[in-house]
């Protein structure tokens, strides 16, 4: 344990800064963070993380449990706001705008930044009402508009053909994989440009998992996707870039291929090869 902490201190402060300087892409980042720290009470759980996420790409956050990757993901739609002891420092921008700015309305932000959770969490309502929920809370009542949005979202979530004849059935009656796709459709229905996924397949069986992964591939064409995963094979399969977190630090952030074949940091390599975690 003590050797690990030593390594942390000596190794990764520099390379990250170098990377953000030299490897900046010409296109503007969709999401960018600048020296972000997060505290729960006195606990510092995210330590000075700066990252830039490109538009219409899939970025995976990996790392052992408790490394802060979920907390970091939840910064992007301000889901941490509900934790009473939560406090953050540093800037987080989406499309160049500070999402923690005073004038930002959290409800507007969340329409733009959808989220899919670890366990499928459909509301105990019909499939239709689940997908239409986000529109209804915005005050949309026209049946035709809702119908169209529900169909479109379910098609995008590759679920339409399976459920089109049973839209009024309770979403809880579906299989776990279908439920998760309902949740994805529900998130898509409000027209986000970013989709956050917090271990979206960890509660699913392998077949359902591969369906969700396939879906992520298709959604990449239109959405910026950030996915937290425990499963490194999954990160390898679905993501363009991968960020490795450890003890609240961003250890390494690079093209997924690079991370998995030739990581810069010894810590990353040890985690990838399963020597701890």
């Amino acid at each position: 344990m003590s050797t690990l902490t030593m390594e942390k201190k000596t190794h990764f402060a520099e390379p990250i800064k170098n990377m953000s300087d030299s490897k900046k892409k010409p296109s503007i980042a969709k999401i960018s963070t600048n020296n972000v720290n997060v505290f729960y009470g006195d606990n510092k759980v995210i330590k000075d993380v700066s990252i830039e996420i490109q538009e219409k790409s899939v970025t995976a956050f990996i790392g052992p449990s408790g490394c802060g990757k979920s907390t970091f993901l939840r910064l992007f739609n301000r889901m941490n706001d509900y934790i009473e002891t939560f406090r953050k420092e540093g800037d987080i921008c989406i499309d160049g705008k500070d999402i923690y700015g005073k004038k930002v309305m959290v409800e507007e932000l969340r329409k733009m930044v959808g989220m899919v959770f670890q366990k499928p969490n459909p509301f105990p309502k019909s499939i239709y009402e689940n997908v239409a929920f986000g529109l209804r809370i915005q005050g949309i009542k026209k049946r035709a508009v809702l119908d169209e949005a529900v169909e479109h979202s379910l098609r995008q979530a590759a679920l339409w053909e399976e459920v089109k004849d049973q839209l009024n059935k309770s979403a809880l009656a579906l299989s776990g994989g279908q439920q998760q796709r309902v949740c994805i459709a529900r998130a898509l229905a409000v027209g986000p440009s970013v989709l956050l996924m917090d271990e979206p397949a960890s509660a699913l069986d392998p077949i359902a998992t591969s369906k969700v992964e396939e879906l992520i591939h298709q959604l990449k064409e239109k959405y910026t996707i950030v996915i937290v995963t425990h499963n490194m094979q999954q990160a390898g399969r679905v993501s363009d870039k991968t960020a490795f977190f450890y003890l609240g630090n961003l250890v390494e952030f690079d093209k997924t291929k690079k991370i998995f074949t030739n990581p810069k940091q010894e810590l990353t390599e040890r985690y990838i090869t399963g020597r701890f975690g």
């Binding site: 409800e107 969340r110 989220m115 959770f117 969490n121 949740c183």
Partner: peptide, 8 residues
């Protein structure tokens, strides 16, 4: 969380 996540 699901509901807040939708902007409710």
């Amino acid at each position: 969380e699901a509901s807040y996540g939708m902007g409710a």
